[in-house]
């Protein structure tokens, strides 16, 4: 097999190479090419700089983030029925989640749709979905239903 790669082919794989996400034989061929080709090596350096700038833009939360979270959690639970009871209810009713979802989508409008979407696409786990629904339906003090 010919391990010589063309610049064009190398360049399209440089992000994968940078992230060590390529199969070893391909990464090896690219490494060989980079040793000999300053243009492509320069491209890799540019990609690397961009990746570094993005990861360098990390923030930390403001002080007290966990405390604010704990307060919100407490407020939500106090506002609804007991959280544990809701979770048990969710388990029991998970078989009806799909029907409930349909009713919710029709009846409760976009605010619910919004939260439901978080769970529908990634997991399609009826229980998570149902929990998301009841979480949205009660105790979110910031929403006006």
């Amino acid at each position: 097999m010919n391990s010589e790669m063309r610049c064009q082919d190398v360049r399209s794989r440089l992000s994968g190479y940078h992230d060590s996400a390529l199969p070893p034989p391909l990464a090896g061929s690219i490494r060989l090419h980079l040793d000999k080709c300053p243009d492509c090596a320069g491209e890799l350096a540019a990609i690397s700089r961009v990746a570094g700038l993005v990861s360098g833009s990390m923030l930390d939360a403001r002080p007290g983030f966990e405390e604010r979270f704990a307060r919100k959690l407490t407020a939500r639970r106090a506002a609804g029925e007991s959280w544990a009871a809701r979770a048990r209810l969710a388990k029991r009713l998970s078989a009806y989640a799909a029907a409930f979802l349909l009713a919710a989508l029709v009846g409760l409008g976009p605010a619910v749709v919004r939260d439901v979407r978080d769970y529908v696409a990634p997991s399609s786990d009826a229980q998570i979905l149902y929990l998301a629904l009841i979480e949205n339906g009660s105790g979110d003090q910031e929403d006006s239903h």
Binding site: V54, L59, R62, F69, K72, L73, A87, K91, D115, Q127
Partner: peptide, 30 residues
């Protein structure tokens, strides 16, 4: 940081991050 990168706004990101963790706390047991 993830939220801020999408919203472009670090302050709003803080509120949305709280929302993320509240959702996660509610769904995690299942």
């Amino acid at each position: 940081s993830l939220v801020a990168a999408h919203l472009g706004d670090a302050d709003q990101a803080e509120d949305v991050a709280q929302e993320v963790f509240l959702k996660a706390r509610a769904a995690l047991p299942s």
